[in-house]
Structure formats: structure tokens, C-alpha cells
């Protein structure tokens, strides 16, 4: 029993608990407003969107990839849904049609990411950075450059503002997404395969895993959760436009990193991503309460990302022997072996 406690304190979760505790103590001393029910609920509302997106992006990060398009994907989804909803006067039918269209768009974009990363062997951050710009360029064609205001108290309003047993709907959606993603990763063969591919794609292929197919699915999941995040975001703000979701990929990335997800792939899980989102949300909220300007908040975010990565490397969770050589025997190597 005793050793279990020491292991917990020394382990990843112990460290996480410690970090949260420290922040709470600091807050209790310096900023009374932090613990007011209104503020706690606003923190959770803010992290629900990051959290939803982080859960999906986790699938890509586990493969050692990144999806920098999630912010723009959320924006595109918000715009598409609002566009269809507006034409139907924000009735249920219009919202559902919009949601279907947004999800379809997400599947297409995610699949495209997967194809470019696997078949063309492009680095994921380049591919997703490019689609980020493409999607932002595409949005004005739907909105005609104007904001779409969501009116009425229909389904769209409910998604952002209703409560289930006193819990705001965005948080409920976040929890549902987190549980589903967590179950997929921990209980399904697909989850097992993702960890294997992230840990060593060559060895994975040799035990019969369709590496390319599973990779494509991971990229699709990342875009689909981003689209869901976009829907929640615009229904909370009751507005959708070109700036919706702008820069959210940074917050999601921050959540990944402070959540201890190994960016090299193969290690991490939904609890880490959720914790990361929570911590990122608290830090942002804290800065707002302390009156830190939005620009300076970006500065702090960047510093935290660097610090967290440094810490990760420094503590050497992946010692030299643990880092698997990645994608060494790709198609090209296969061909050159053939040339003999």
C-alpha cells in the first residue's frame, strides 16, 4: 500500500495532481474570484471546446503526427452549420443538415490529410498547416465575408446553452466525446493498433496492421472532433464567421503538451489530453482574471509549450533506447532493396 502511494506521487498522475494543487493554492491566496461558481463554470465552458478538439487530435499525435488544421476546421464547421441553419430560420432540420454537411466536410479534409501523409509521405504539420490556410480562404465563399448571427432558441441555442441536470450542454458533449475517444483508444483493436503504429510503424506493418488505413482514420477522427468543437463554439457565442476557431490549434497543442502526450507518438491517452485541456483552460482563465492582456497571454502560452517540452526531454521519459526509428522502411526503401 505504502509503495503504491509513493509510486502515485512519483508517477505522472501524482505530478499532475501536484501541479493542480499548487495552482489552486496560488489562486486561493491571490485571486478570490477564481473559486466563484460563475468562474469555475466559465473555465469548464472554455475548456469544453479545446477538450473536444484535443480528444480527436490525440489520435493523430499518438501516431507521431500533428493536426494544425483543427482551428480552421472548427471555423469551417461553424460556418457551414450556421449557413444551413440560417436558411431554415434556425430550425432543427436546418441545423441537422448543416451538421451532416460539416461532418462530411471534416471526413473529406481528414481523409485528404491521411492520404497526403501516408501515400505521398508528407510531414503532417506541413499538410495540415496548408489546409488551415486553404480552409480560411474557403470560408468567405460561404459567409460572403459577413458574420452569421444565430437567433432564436432552437437546437443551435440549446447546444451551447441548455443544461442537463444542471451541467451546461458543452461540458456534457465534451465528457461524451472524451469517454467515447477514451474507450476507442483503450478498449478497441483500432486503439491498440494506433499505439503500435505510433511506437513503431515498420514492426506494426509486419504484424499485419494496415498502417496507411488506420492512419487515415486517425486524421479523419481529428477533423470530425474539430467540427464538433466548432459547432459547440459557435452555438455558445451565437455567432459564426471567419474568425471562429481562429488559433484554437495552439490551445489544443498546449493541452497536448502540458497533458504529457508524447509528440513522438505511441504514448499518452485521453486522461492526459483532458488534464491538459483543464490545465490550459485554468492558466488562460487565471491570466484573464489577473488582467493579463490577450497579446501577453500568447507569449505565456508559447513559453509554457517550450518549458513543457524541455521538461519532457530533460526528464528523459524516452531514453535513447526507447525511441523507435520511424518509417525507415518506407516504400522507397522497399524499392531500393529491390534494385539490390
Amino acid at each position: 500500500m505504502n509503495s503504491k502511494i509513493t509510486r502515485f506521487i512519483g508517477g505522472q498522475w501524482g505530478q499532475r495532481a501536484l501541479i493542480l494543487l499548487l495552482i489552486f493554492i496560488v489562486m486561493a491566496v491571490f485571486e478570490r474570484k477564481f473559486f466563484t461558481p460563475g468562474n469555475v463554470s466559465s473555465i469548464f465552458l472554455a475548456i469544453s471546446v479545446y477538450g473536444i478538439m484535443a480528444c480527436g487530435m490525440l489520435f493523430v499525435v499518438l501516431l507521431g503526427g500533428l493536426d494544425l488544421s483543427v482551428g480552421s476546421m472548427a471555423g469551417l464547421s461553424a460556418v457551414i452549420i450556421s449557413f444551413f441553419a440560417k436558411n431554415d430560420n434556425f430550425g432543427t432540420g436546418g441545423v441537422l443538415t448543416g451538421l451532416l454537411a460539416a461532418l462530411a466536410a471534416a471526413v473529406v479534409v481528414g481523409w485528404l490529410h491521411g492520404v497526403l501523409v501516408t501515400q505521398i509521405n508528407m510531414p503532417s504539420f506541413v499538410v495540415t498547416l496548408a489546409t488551415k490556410y486553404i480552409l480560411y480562404g474557403f470560408m468567405p465563399m460561404i459567409t460572403s465575408g459577413a458574420f452569421i448571427y444565430i437567433t432564436g432558441e432552437g437546437l443551435m441555442y440549446q447546444v451551447g446553452n441548455a443544461k442537463v441536470l444542471g451541467v451546461p450542454m458543452p461540458i456534457v458533449i465534451f465528457l461524451v466525446v472524451a469517454v467515447i475517444c477514451g474507450l476507442i483508444l483503450s478498449r478497441t483493436t483500432f486503439g491498440r493498433r494506433l499505439y503500435a503504429i505510433g511506437g513503431n510503424p515498420t514492426a506494426s506493418a509486419l504484424v499485419g496492421i494496415h498502417v496507411f488505413r488506420d492512419t487515415k482514420i486517425a486524421y479523419i477522427i481529428s477533423c470530425v472532433t474539430a467540427a464538433l468543437g466548432g459547432m459547440v463554439l459557435c452555438s455558445m457565442n451565437m455567432i459564426a464567421g471567419q474568425t471562429t476557431g481562429n488559433g484554437y490549434e495552439g490551445n489544443v497543442l498546449l493541452a497536448m503538451i502540458v497533458g504529457g502526450i508524447n509528440l513522438a507518438g505511441g504514448e499518452g491517452g485521453v486522461p492526459g489530453a483532458v488534464f491538459g485541456a483543464l490545465l490550459a483552460g485554468i492558466i488562460t482563465n487565471l491570466m484573464t482574471l489577473l488582467g493579463v492582456s490577450a497579446d501577453f497571454q500568447k507569449f505565456v502560452q508559447g513559453m509554457i509549450i517550450l518549458a513543457a517540452i524541455t521538461l519532457n526531454v530533460y526528464t528523459g521519459r524516452r531514453s535513447a533506447g526507447l525511441s523507435a526509428p520511424k518509417r525507415r522502411r518506407g516504400k522507397a526503401a522497399e524499392e531500393s532493396a529491390k534494385q539490390g
Binding site: R192, A196, A203, S204, L322, A324, R328, R329
Partner: peptide, 14 residues
């Protein structure tokens, strides 16, 4: 086996 045989970060079980 290092490159093609096993997944280093994963457990014996996995």
C-alpha cells in the same frame, strides 16, 4: 528486431 520486430515503448503484453 529493433527496427522491425517489436514496439519498444510498449509492454511485453501489448
Amino acid at each position: 528486431r529493433r527496427v522491425e520486430g517489436f514496439i519498444p515503448v510498449q509492454s511485453i503484453e501489448k
